[in-house]
Design a protein around this nucleic acid. Sequence first.
DNA 1: CGAACTTTTGATATCACTCAAGGGACGTGG
DNA 2: CCACGTCCCTTGAGTGATATCAAAAGTTCG
Lengths: 246, 246
Amino acid sequence: MDQNARTSNPLIRKLEGFVPLSAADRFFLERISAGPRPIAASTDLAREGEAPNGVVLILEGMACRHKRAANGSRQIMAYLVPGDLCDLDVALLDQMDHTITTLSDCSVVHITPETITQVMKNHPQIARGLRLCTLVDEATLREWLVNVGCRTSDERIAHLLCELLLRLRFVGKAMQDSFDLPVTQQDLADTTGMTAVHVKRTMLNLQRQGLVALAGTSLQILDLPRLKALAGFKENYLHLGNRAAA
Amino acid sequence: MDQNARTSNPLIRKLEGFVPLSAADRFFLERISAGPRPIAASTDLAREGEAPNGVVLILEGMACRHKRAANGSRQIMAYLVPGDLCDLDVALLDQMDHTITTLSDCSVVHITPETITQVMKNHPQIARGLRLCTLVDEATLREWLVNVGCRTSDERIAHLLCELLLRLRFVGKAMQDSFDLPVTQQDLADTTGMTAVHVKRTMLNLQRQGLVALAGTSLQILDLPRLKALAGFKENYLHLGNRAAA
DNA sequence: CGAACTTTTGATATCACTCAAGGGACGTGG
DNA sequence: CCACGTCCCTTGAGTGATATCAAAAGTTCG
């Protein structure tokens, strides 16, 4: 069949990594993803303090969850890449506790809570896949806490790059060992709990060691095994073992 | 009615903060909580790498989620207090990505995935409440990332103590402004990304400033407003606004 | 009563931050 | 097309918060 003709829809790719989907499931997901809206970089998709307005699905580009501490310092708490969905159950909350902002130009789809309800009721495989994705998102968040709490600056950056490569590969957004990293050094700093100056020096370190190359926003990983070793990267938290296609 | 006779069941107390429960709901929850098992301190309730064995509900004592980075350093990623449940959907995963261990002597209940399925189907208010709890747990995890990524050591400890006081109050486990904190300084260090030596000095700081008092494992907060101010503590992430009883 | 763990305190080291200033890239308006 | 502002990157020098090392005293528990 067209089992091999992989779809370019990143959500379908991601879900099919976790659960088997019927033709009807795929059709439904394609329909949901139809008519994505282009959103400029640095646009808020949801704001802390405001009511959540439905679920957002990223189809192209990158966005992030972040918030500012009272002392003015900013923390990025997640990157949203193609195929990623902001929380399934967000409609249960009356107020966002963080902000979601695009990092690059994106194309996104807004999904109504009603559609979500419909999916959860009528498409059990999709529902299961989406719940798994939520669990993986949570595990990723925990790993980020480990990253900031336990690792040196070199390890932190290395770990982040390993994770991004794997996640982008899943959804067909990484060419071999390179991917687009449309973020500033300040963003990386806010992600890893470092300063921008130190991010710069750390990236230089990794480049001098022949681990990565950076040209503009294009990041190439030159030696993934060594980068993983440096980061202490164990991919179990991404739960690839759950992936049907293994 | 016995609206005022608050139950001592911490799960019911927590859920009733978020959703209205029927008598049948309460009865069902009491039945689930029946026959808790005593567990000694420092016992693993679930282990990284092993298959999850159902959902665990804490009724008394404290436990934590944690994992060890490849460099040997340990990170605690959540405290589980009475009324807390480990992830609802954990049964979807084939492998734990972190370990859950008791910090003190606990009494806990194991809930089978079948029971969870039954709850989600037959008790919509409980289901809604549990989903909300999961969202709050996630928001708390994000706040911990902010804590470690953005705050100074004094702010980190202060923030953690503010959070614990509020969470323990919800479930009736804090006397006014004091609560039991059955953790070592090393645990606090692994929670906040500091060293045990520095935790000690930071706690001394807070005590010298008249903000808290510590006697054995009993922690008393002497000046909550000033402690909150120091921490930059904003409680919105605990989503008290969603609480029916406000 | 000894072994293992935890707390406590002091002295020293270091990783990452702060401050500062110049240069490049990009967009906008004259 | 050039001038200008803004934002980001880059690099150096100095500082500081927190880690590391070490040792003694207290605590817990078998």
